[in-house]
């Protein structure tokens, strides 16, 4: 693996001057992913959402490479079209340069409204990388719940009220769904481990055919934590097994990190304002339900990865 000293010499493809909020996880995730493309020519596609809106306010673009946004629910189809053009022009000898293609979508643009377009693009086998920047809600329109929003979270469309304590449903497991497309590479990663992000992004760029990466990309506005603590918080997501790091390469599941001890989900929930209500008396059942869901999913994941299905020692 390249060292940071070497990686810092790669030309920056997502420059300062964009208007993401201070400390937005998207800025970190995008920089890490694009850095792994090293000196390749890259075309970036992007779904509507905070990233796109904040990075291309005319006449300024933060993208130091070719970029296209067309709509919210179609980043998969749009970048697929770009890649089809590349293939066609190459085949006909109308283009000599090599290119790599990557699309970024938020969880809304990926798990929900853009799901069909992404599924289609993956099934067709375009040679593209699709990166979901999962901040677990529709942030750009003001923090509404998505199918990636964790159970219990307080969002503006799953508000913690007197009767209903936040979102009632557990998250959709999109990474597993993408793996079920039998694409060459699907992975889930977290910025707390930059080597893991880098390695997976590099692999995704290198494999022939479609690759999918899901990155937990915290939003300080929507999650309401202390902005500088982003890396600690993501680390807690991994340690509590809320956000396991794993990859599925050509159908083979592999767990990339196994916590040494049992860290209860409260460690991840506590620092975040969106879960504050869960700690009020009477909502203990919610935390219990969340923990059960996590434990069950963890055991299932271990099994898929060929590991002994047991919880870490308490």
């Amino acid at each position: 693996m390249a060292t940071l000293k070497e990686l810092a010499k790669v030309e920056e493809r997502f420059v300062g001057g964009h208007r993401l909020c201070a400390g937005c996880g998207h800025g970190i995730s995008v920089r890490m992913v694009l850095n792994a493309a090293e000196d390749a020519n890259v075309v970036v596609g992007c779904a509507t959402g905070c990233l796109e809106v904040a990075s291309t306010i005319y006449p300024y673009t933060a993208w130091n490479c070719s970029f296209i946004h067309s709509a919210f629910e179609n980043a998969g189809a749009t970048i697929g079209g770009v890649e089809a053009a590349y293939k066609s022009l190459k085949k006909q000898g109308k283009l000599d340069k090599d290119f790599k293609f990557v699309a970024f979508g938020g969880d809304g643009g990926t798990y929900d409204i853009g799901f069909q377009s992404l599924s289609g693009a993956m099934e067709r086998g375009h040679n593209i990388v699709y990166v979901c920047l999962d901040n677990e809600a529709y942030m750009n329109t003001g923090i509404q719940r998505s199918s990636a929003t964790p159970m219990g979270a307080d969002t503006t469309t799953s508000p913690a009220g007197k009767v209903v304590p936040g979102k009632q449903q557990p998250r959709k497991d999109l990474t597993a769904i993408m793996a079920a497309h039998n694409i060459p590479y699907a992975a889930q990663t977290a910025i707390s481990n930059w080597q893991d992000v880098h390695r997976k992004a590099k692999k995704a760029f290198d494999v022939e055919g479609p690759a999918f990466i899901n990155i937990l990309s915290p939003c300080p506005r929507g999650w309401r934590y202390n902005t500088p603590d982003i890396v600690e918080l993501v680390k807690a997501a991994v340690e509590t097994r809320f956000w396991p790091m794993y990859e599925v390469e050509n159908g083979k599941w592999k767990l990339n990190y196994k916590p040494k001890k049992y860290v209860p989900i409260e460690e991840f929930l506590k620092p975040q304002g969106r879960f504050r209500h869960l700690f009020a008396p009477g909502n203990e059942h919610m935390i219990k339900a969340i923990q059960e869901e996590i434990d069950n999913r963890w055991l299932a994941l271990l099994e898929r990865c060929g590991e002994t299905p047991e919880l870490p020692p308490k």
């Binding site: 075309v43 296209i68 067309s70 179609n74 749009t78 089809a84 053009a85 590349y86």
Partner: peptide, 13 residues
């Protein structure tokens, strides 16, 4: 929807 989206991507490319 994807047909026109892909045509847009291709044409832009």
């Amino acid at each position: 929807h994807s047909a026109m989206s892909a045509a847009i991507g291709a044409s832009a490319a």
